[in-house]
């Protein structure tokens, strides 16, 4: 049933992570997950679900008002393992210079508009990898070719405003992989692109994963993007992971009502006229105090037990977990309200 390979060594291990923003508003709580070496994991959720805060914590890039209250983030395994929570500046510099790469939604805002894109990558190679000017230049052109930019030597000379969104994202990916990282984090990296370019960028990420042995954390609001690109899926809601497991299994038989609801509103491969599903209500705000399940107010299956107290994560076996008091069988019996 599951086509997922065993990933014994881990690239990133997050345990019991809690992040608060502003005046102690808890935005992410009780988040644990593991990314195996060479594995691709999709983190899916609506805006405000805490998915971006979680991956920013793994990059040491939380906003000024955000901080990690509890939990551990460990990069790598065995002798190479680095504890990232509470890491010093020098540790972060080393990690970000050689072990984690990242791409974000708006590539133009991560590049200096007054320098050519080639210069910006070559400079990194000189500073971080100690390459000499000529070698850095050659390597930059090579990397640009590898991420599928046509005429890489020509692109080297261009400024960010001369390139399209899809080309800029390729430049950012080239910069991210230039340090030969173990882990690439892509936070809504294809959201602003049109579907044709999005498919190209996702194909590129899949290819790079295979050729570089990268682990990939793909953060997106679109379940369909994860369906095509990730071996494992983490569904996040209201600051918690509500379901996780091998992508194929989760999409075939979702265990958490929120995952079911997300699938109802997701892009499906059919072009027929149909009623477009809506999840009623709004997700909880960051820090909103809720005694029970955070999805309960919007859940068609909610019962008294859901509101009584915190709902723990249930291990369902076969690498799957769900944070719900019901099981799949009792979901099937229950009629949604």
């Amino acid at each position: 049933m599951s086509s997922v390979r065993e990933h014994t060594a881990s690239t990133l291990e997050v345990s019991d992570l809690q992040i608060s923003v502003g005046d102690g508003l808890v935005a992410v709580q009780d988040v644990s997950f593991r990314i195996g070496r060479g594995e691709s994991v999709g983190l899916v959720g609506e805006s405000g679900s805490g998915k971006t805060l979680t991956c920013r914590a793994a990059l040491g890039l939380l906003p000024a008002t955000g901080r990690v209250d509890a939990g551990r983030i460990v990069l790598g395994d065995g002798p190479d393992a680095v504890e990232l929570t509470g890491a010093r500046r020098s540790t972060w510099d080393r990690v970000r210079a050689g072990r984690i790469g990242a791409v974000f939604q708006d590539p133009a805002s991560y590049l200096n508009p007054s320098l050519t894109v080639g210069h910006q990558l070559a400079e990194q190679l000189r500073v971080k990898r100690g390459l000499r000017r000529g070698a850095a230049r050659d390597r930059t052109v090579e990397l640009f070719a590898e991420v599928g930019l046509h005429d890489p030597a020509g692109v080297f000379q261009q400024y960010p405003h001369q390139l399209s969104g899809g080309m800029l994202q390729r430049v950012l990916i080239a910069i991210a992989i230039s340090c030969e990282p173990e882990l690439l984090i892509a936070d809504e990296a294809t959201t602003a692109l049109d579907v044709v370019i999005q498919a190209e960028i996702l194909a590129l990420l899949r290819r790079l994963r295979a050729s570089h042995g990268l682990s990939l954390l793909l953060v997106t609001h679109d379940l369909a993007v994860v369906a095509e690109s990730c071996e494992r899926i983490l569904v996040m809601y209201g600051g918690q992971i509500v379901e996780s497991g091998p992508t194929e299994d989760v999409l075939e038989d979702p265990q958490h009502p929120y995952t079911r609801a997300l699938m109802g509103v997701a892009t499906i491969g059919d072009w027929g006229r149909r009623r477009l599903d809506v999840i009623p209500g709004q997700p909880p705000a960051a820090g909103e105090k809720m005694p029970g399940c955070r999805f309960a107010p919007r859940c068609g299956y909610a019962a008294a037990a859901c509101l009584a107290g915190p709902v723990p994560v249930t291990d369902l076996g076969a690498g799957r977990t769900s944070r719900c008091v019901r099981t799949s069988a009792s979901l099937a019996e229950a009629v949604p309200a």
Partner: peptide, 19 residues
């Protein structure tokens, strides 16, 4: 055709590969 083949979707096995 390229647009429809590129649109991400869940469980559509019959689609053309955009490549």
């Amino acid at each position: 055709a390229l647009l429809t083949a590129s649109a991400p979707s869940i469980g559509d096995e019959e689609r053309l590969d955009p490549a």
